[in-house]
Design a protein around this nucleic acid. Structure first.
Lengths: 179, 179
DNA sequence: TATTGTTATACTCTATAACTATA
DNA sequence: TATAGTTATAGAGTATAACAATA
């Protein structure tokens, strides 16, 4: 455990943080000695509420599965997108992921400092940086995909079943794209 | 529009913020002149990715629907939980929602300053504050529920259908509770 | 003049430590 | 000694403005 959820600053600090992000919430829920659980009531039917709680759980599980590679969901998504779209610049990769250009700089600094991807000055337009995966980046991404498939997705399949998992992702995509 | 996503500081500032949280992301995706969309590839099958994007969309829609009442998802969840569980203290309400006690103080200060809920010193244990909704709080919550039902949930039903919406919430609850 | 990458900065959310008043 | 509410504070995430280099 002890996954650094952060890890985007230019100078990485792989210090043993006191806890995964999960800890705080868990503490919050377990602090007092279980004095009769509260009634959630309509809250358990609120889409936003269950969506947010589910998202937190999924990200926590992702971080645990990726602990050996030290990849956050955001970093993994960048690597996936750069692999699938080599030759694109920072603006294109960032905006596709909903990351603002200023915030993408530190994230890329981190990946580049770990030799997972590289900025290449474009010859066509010398303002832009083309992004590519390094050999190490490709290797790490391959291992990351395997971890996601065997640990992360497998867990979800156990919980929901293959068919439900696909239906879930389809509905979430629809919400993300059309809501 | 111009919903202040924040609104938790003790002294509320209902200044016209430059933009809803959504704007930044939208700008990020539309900034450059649509130079051939990128391939999402495996990203569109990643649970965490679609979950996060869907959650952001749902929260944005929630804020728009609640603009007239100026209630955030977190504030709405507190009002719902206090209504359903009157006589509970701050620690119990906060921990059930996964909010840490220190962070719950400003949130409550805001609701109390708007006369939506009240802290009452417990007679049994003078350390704790019992939480209750004020009459105004009950009235606002009633209106909020109607807005959620007629605008927010209705939108989701249009998009997915009633049956799918229920299946979605059930799956998300399962993930939130068992993943 | 407009755009790319960048810096600086601010605000929100989340997290921990430590104080106070009560128990 | 332990707990409830609180304060102070720090770290990530996310947002905007503005600058240098380039177009």
């Amino acid at each position: 455990m002890t996954v650094s959820k952060t890890a985007d600053k230019t100078a990485e600090k792989s210090s043993e943080k006191p806890a995964d992000t999960a800890k705080g919430r868990k503490d919050a829920a377990e602090a007092q000695g279980a004095a009769e659980a509260l009634q959630l009531g309509e809250l358990s039917e609120q889409l936003g509420y269950v969506l947010k709680r589910a998202q937190l759980k999924v990200f926590e599980n992702f971080l645990r599965c990726m602990a050996s590679l030290q990849l956050t969901p955001a970093q993994f998504s960048v690597l996936l997108l750069v692999e699938k779209n080599p030759g694109r610049n920072q603006t294109e990769i960032a905006s596709t992921l909903g990351i603002l250009r200023p915030n993408f700089v530190a994230l890329l600094d981190n990946l580049e400092s770990r030799d997972l991807c590289a900025r290449i000055r474009s010859t066509n337009d010398r303002r832009s940086h083309i992004l590519v995966l390094t050999d190490k980046g490709k290797a790490v991404l391959t291992r990351a995909k395997k971890l996601v498939a065997t640990k992360h997705e497998a867990r979800l399949n156990d919980l929901l079943g293959q068919a439900n998992r696909e239906a879930l992702i389809e509905m979430l995509s629809k919400i993300a794209n059309e809501f």
